[in-house]
Design a protein around this nucleic acid. Structure first.
Lengths: 194, 194
DNA sequence: AAAGATCCTTGACAAATATCAAGGGAATTC
DNA sequence: GAATTCCCTTGATATTTGTCAAGGATCTTT
């Protein structure tokens, strides 16, 4: 499974055998069954996590017990809770597997060592941070400016494979609408397409 | 005006006279009048911008001509468009001043030089990035999980000074609701407080 | 000081979305 | 294979929010 990570890195940065040896040494593979937690609310998160296979979701549970999905992560995406990681505070989020998954995790101290020893790795991580931030800002923009229907269309255009892979009620949660509303939107779109 | 930036840096990292001399050399101060643009949609953004005095907002305009405010930035906050900056693409956003303001900008190539020459500066910038990302994620979470009233309460609790400083219709835009809805929410909250 | 522009609130009505309930089909578990 | 669970859709109704219009207060410009 670590080969997935190796290929991912090699696609994005120069990766010598020596570099890979340093990285491989600190990689830990976790296999998760469907519905199994990677992180539970209240725990302190201590890793950087890369999805080798499968799909995860990060969500919060509000005072009424309703789940709100903040993020999906499938192959080649990163997941975790940087706030808990950096501040060493209990996380407000849960991360669990939507299907059986394999996740590669690296402890934060090992990760920082990699960033110091391997400038190309550090640059890659900085780029990923930038892209994460930009994606977050773009998502805020679409969340405050689009109707529910526009949000759904934006989602299926942006993540077509994901849209066919996760349950509709989870997509609804991610979009901040109810499953019934999403069902009606899909019905309306089908009607108009004919 | 650059002293504001100097004090901000000194509060957050060790800052020798030599360090400050290197930084001061690449600082540019821009004075903006109320409503004057720092960035206009379609332009390519080329700076990192720090607000020394005043208040700015970053917003998009949708297909119907409606403004959606993504972010406010007042004293000691950073602003800009990293997507446009990094990809050298035309920005989808506008940034303008809500009141007369002074903004310190640094060209990206100078900024990168500072990050390379001054490790403490680089660390500070990384921390700021982390905090920006965490704040964005937290905002997405609250945007998909809270009612309009809860959003407003969250906003005035999180940014009490800002809430008294920017027009209500801009707060409504930032929260993704209409000014009329915000007015009714405020009225309801006043009624319930009695 | 007056005129004009902007901000904000309120009323009436419309539209979008949520809530609740029910039921059918598919997937999962035993 | 049967029972159970989960997923999804649909109908009816309630609630929240948006739209449009109007008017008063405040701020800005002349």
């Amino acid at each position: 499974m670590v080969e997935v990570f190796q290929k991912y890195l090699a696609d994005k940065m120069p990766l010598s055998d020596a570099d890979w040896a340093v990285i491989e040494r600190v990689c830990i593979i976790k296999k998760l069954r469907k519905n199994q937690y990677l992180l539970q609310e209240g725990d302190v998160w201590r890793y950087h996590a890369f999805v080798c296979k499968g799909c995860l979701r990060r969500y919060s549970i509000d005072a009424k017990g309703i789940e709100h999905i903040l993020q999906f992560s499938c192959e080649n995406w990163w997941t975790g809770d940087r706030d808990s990681l950096m501040n060493k505070t209990p996380s407000k989020y849960n991360i669990d597997a939507i299907e059986d998954s394999s996740v590669l995790v690296i402890r934060n101290e090992d990760f920082e060592m990699l960033c110091q020893q391997l400038p190309a790795f550090n640059n890659l991580i900085n780029q990923i941070l930038f892209r994460s931030l930009n994606a977050s800002q773009e998502r805020i923009n679409s969340t405050i400016s689009l109707t529910a229907e526009e949000k759904y269309l934006h989602f299926i255009n942006t993540f077509p494979l994901l849209a066919n892979r996760v349950p509709r009620h989870m997509i609804a949660s991610y979009l901040g609408i109810t499953p019934e509303t999403l069902s009606r939107i899909k019905g309306n779109l089908s009607k108009n397409k004919q």
